[in-house]
Simulated scan of single mutants.
Amino acid sequence: MSTTFRFIANPLGPSDVISWFKELPLPPTMVQTERGWNLHFHEFGSLVYSIDSTINPQKSPVVIIFLPRVVRGVLWTVGEVHFLSTPLKQQFPKLHRISTAFSKWLSAMPCVYSNNCKENEFAYYLEGSVQNQDTPVFAFESGYSALQSGRYFVADSDNEYRLDTICKTLALRGVPCADV
């Protein structure tokens, strides 16, 4: 099973997460995508391809990062970091150590939502499927400030239908979303 980390931060500012990976002693090869970055830790192994010529992320030393972004003008998505290799520790022990180090670094930030907590102070501002996932959500300073000022967050994976429903709810709270 892959390992996922979630975070909130201002999508318009520089990414602390990207900086963290760039500052590693053996930084990965980084390829920017429409929604974030794909990282290949070539020092730990080659990319493995599936029969259809796509990269097999479960057998390759890769990490996928979905950066926070603005949707519908007023919503920010929750950022995600996915260590996809499985089993990570057995296949790529050095990448597992990076995952562990990243976890320690990220967990030093305030946890703003977790299924393990009885009270989540900011749950009201986490819309869509953000609360339906097992992994906690940590906040960088910019994300924490946004929560305190009433910014709403959605999951990166929430589709247009889900966003329509969220925007209708937010309109009742006096928060108008931008048209698609």
Rank of each mutant, 00 (worst) to 15 (best):
L88W: 04
N116T: 04
P136Q: 04
R97Q: 15
A139P: 14
W105V: 00
F138I: 03
G150K: 07
Q91W: 01
F140P: 00
C111F: 00
E121C: 09
Q148F: 02
N115P: 12
R97C: 08
S149I: 05
S103A: 13
A101M: 14
V137T: 13
L95W: 07
K89Y: 00
S129G: 11
K94F: 09
E127F: 02
S145Q: 14
A101E: 15
G150L: 08
V112P: 09
A123S: 15
L88T: 05
F153R: 01
S103P: 13
N132M: 06
N116P: 01
C117V: 01
P136T: 04
A155S: 15
F140E: 03
Y113W: 06
G128D: 12
N132F: 08
S114E: 10
Q133E: 09
I98D: 11
Y113A: 01
A123R: 08
P110H: 01
R151A: 07
R97H: 12
A155D: 15
Y144W: 06
M109H: 10
R97L: 13
L106K: 02
A146M: 03
P87D: 11
S142T: 11
F153P: 03
Q133N: 07
F138N: 09
H96V: 02
S103E: 15
W105Q: 11
S103C: 11
S145C: 09
F122A: 09
A146V: 01
T135H: 13
L95F: 06
L106G: 00
Q148P: 13
Y144K: 05
Y144C: 06
Y144L: 08
A155H: 14
V130N: 13
Q148L: 13
Q148Y: 06
R97M: 12
S107N: 07
N115S: 09
V154H: 08
L147K: 07
V112A: 03
Y113D: 02
P93N: 08
F92W: 06
M109G: 08
C111D: 07
S103T: 07
A139T: 11
E127A: 14
C111L: 00
Y113S: 06
G143L: 00
P136C: 06
S99D: 10
S103H: 15
Y125W: 07
